[in-house]
């Protein structure tokens, strides 16, 4: 699944980043969003942007980016 399909409050682990713009991929990686990184969806707008928590920081990311991040849900207490 992609991050875009995720729900508020759930924790996911990144499986891959597939964006058409390489610069954005690199930027996400520099911000600590890599394969196997855990993230939590803090907030999202219907059809719009997301707020996610990665490595203790909050990031606001747009719809297109969220659609390009492949994730897998992990159980909260894992």
């Amino acid at each position: 699944m992609t991050l875009y399909e995720g729900n508020i409050g759930s924790v996911y682990v990144v499986k891959g980043i597939h964006l058409d713009q390489d610069t954005i991929t690199r930027r996400l990686e520099a911000l600590g969003l890599n394969e196997m990184t855990k993230l939590q969806i803090q907030n999202r707008k219907r059809g719009g942007a997301f707020i996610i928590k990665v490595r203790g920081t909050r990031l606001a990311i747009g719809k297109r980016i969220a659609q390009g991040i492949e994730v897998e849900e992990v159980k909260e207490d894992a």
């Binding site: 713009q21 954005i24 930027r27 996400l28 911000l31 942007a49 707020i51 920081t57 909050r58 990031l59 606001a60 990311i61 747009g62 719809k63 297109r64 980016i65 969220a66 659609q67």
Partner: peptide, 10 residues
Amino acid sequence: AEGTLLIELP
């Protein structure tokens, strides 16, 4: 550039 927002929220 829609949907490509990427910003840290302090």
